[in-house]
Design a protein around this nucleic acid. Structure first.
Length: 417
RNA sequence: GCGGGUGUAGCUCAGUUGGUUAGAGCGCCAGUUUGUGGCACUGGAGGUCGCCGGUUCGAAACCGGUCACUCGCCCCA
């Protein structure tokens, strides 16, 4: 690495990309605020156990895919790989279980040590919501509707399909898991090597295997929905009825699963085929068991997270906000007066560009190229008369006006179409 | 972690079977225009050909390694 380059899997967010991120974040905040979700933030790093306890100390995720380190005091810390655990930890730490329900929105960077691909960075960014407290299906419906509304406002919902499944409650899950494992064990020799391994560490994940041989076997495997008990069936029924009533379209995806035990009932993903293999754009579900795994009281929760990079790619270009007015001094003798005049105009609420170097011709050229609409030109002649030249760069018209009238003239010119 | 592809100027890319000072367009800078932009013309800057090593009289090109990006697998809290 002789050239100075960013760390693998990280990227600078230069203004045009940052504007896309800004649009995604602002749209998410506004869409979820409509449901009462309030923005909050947790620290970017936590004690490692916040992330390792729900996952299991020895899982691949914890041992291979987290950015973990000991700080100078010897504390084992981890850069957050996702934000749900941090939000639930904040609820427990702050005694917020006295104030349920909680509806939180967040946005920020997450860190996972994975092999980078398009739409999969080591530092990436997410927006998300968590709804803590309720365990009823209408809460799930509201969370999913908020996600759909966000994607719709961003203009990407037409490119996405909402996949929906029910994992059932703990009892249903356990019963299904046992049935699936015993079925797959009778077919173990025909499974792919990956799935043989998954059969031990995470059997539900075999359901979304991409191996064609595995898929053939799964044709005759026991179905998750056949193992849902009455409570689980009712939960899913209420959810889908509510989504239909809200006009949120969805498809049943019996192979959509979550591997970890604290998940239950609802699992959902908005998926696009426009981004290659990294197609999930917003995903989430219900995690009623998480708070207890973190050492807190039993508090139900449901939420989602969405990848800002992927959404930005789908949403396309966003406008970078730049000044529409430039203050141009013709020579060094008028620089200070122009600087002062620019300040007084900024006081009136106008964004002003003030190029400090170059001849007036160069300044005008630069202004025109950067889509500046109005150029205020101040030279010695004008300064002596307390006037400026106000030039409209789109029409090429120019007028001499008194400095006292400048703020009004600029405001009027910017209002014109 | 595994497999495939790619890497030449700020950007998009040429570069013949290995051959002498590595090119184009766009962009950038300057001039034609010393107080007025877009157009045009002229000129200029910018590259140890991702990096390291090897083969060779000679490497941007061939070989090995490495780094990064990319496509897929794995993982996906």
């Amino acid at each position: 690495m002789s050239k100075l380059q960013p760390v693998r899997g990280t990227a600078d967010l230069l203004p045009d990309v940052m504007a896309q991120h800004r649009l995604v974040i602002d749209t998410a905040r506004q869409a979820t605020a409509r449901y009462g979700f309030q923005e909050m933030a947790t620290p970017i790093f936590e004690f490692s156990e916040v992330f390792s306890r729900p996952l299991g100390e020895s899982s691949d995720i914890v041992t291979k895919e987290n950015y973990s380190f000991a700080d100078r005091g010897g504390e084992q810390l981890t850069l957050r790989p996702e934000n749900t655990a941090g939000v639930v930890r904040a609820m427990i730490s702050g005694g917020l279980t006295q104030s349920l329900p909680l509806k939180y929105f967040y946005a920020g960077p997450m860190f996972r040590y994975e092999r980078p691909q398009k739409g999969r960075m080591r530092q990436f960014h997410q927006v998300g919501i968590e709804y803590l407290g309720p365990n009823d299906a209408l809460a799930d419906a509201e969370v999913i509707s908020a996600g759909a509304r966000f994607l719709a406002q961003l203009g990407v919902l037409p490119h996405c399909v909402l996949h929906l499944n029910s994992l059932g409650d703990a009892e249903s899950r356990a019963a299904y898991r046992a049935a699936l494992v015993s079925f797959l064990q009778t077919h173990e020799s025909a499974l792919s090597d990956d799935s043989k391994r998954r059969l031990v560490v995470n059997p539900l994940r075999i359901l979304d295997s991409k191996d064609t041989g595995d898929r053939d076997i799964l044709q005759t495997a026991p179905k998750l929905q056949d193992y849902l008990n009455a409570v689980s069936k009712a939960h899913f029924q209420t959810l889908t009825t509510a989504l239909d009533a809200a006009g949120v379209t969805w498809v049943f995806d019996p192979l959509l699963v979550r591997g970890l035990d604290y998940y239950c009932h609802t699992a959902f993903e908005f998926v696009t085929d426009a981004l290659g293999t990294q197609g999930t754009v917003l995903g989430g579900g219900r995690y009623d068991g998480l708070s207890e795994m973190l050492g807190g009281p039993a508090v139900a929760g449901v939420g989602w997270a969405a990848g800002i990079e992927r959404l930005a790619m789908l949403a396309g270009d966003a406008a970078v906000v730049v000044p529409k007015v430039a203050m141009l001094s013709t020579d060094p003798e008028t620089d200070l007066a122009a600087f002062q005049l620019a300040e007084t105009l900024r006081d009136t609420g106008v964004d002003i560009e003030f190029p400090t170097a170059g001849a007036i011709g160069k300044k005008l050229k630069k202004a025109a190229r950067s889509n500046i609409r109005l150029a205020i030109i101040l030279g010695g002649d004008e300064l002596a008369k307390n006037t400026v030249q106000l030039r409209d760069l789109t029409t090429g018209t120019q007028a001499e006006i008194a400095m006292a009238d400048l703020a009004d003239a600029v405001a009027a010119a910017l209002l014109a179409p």
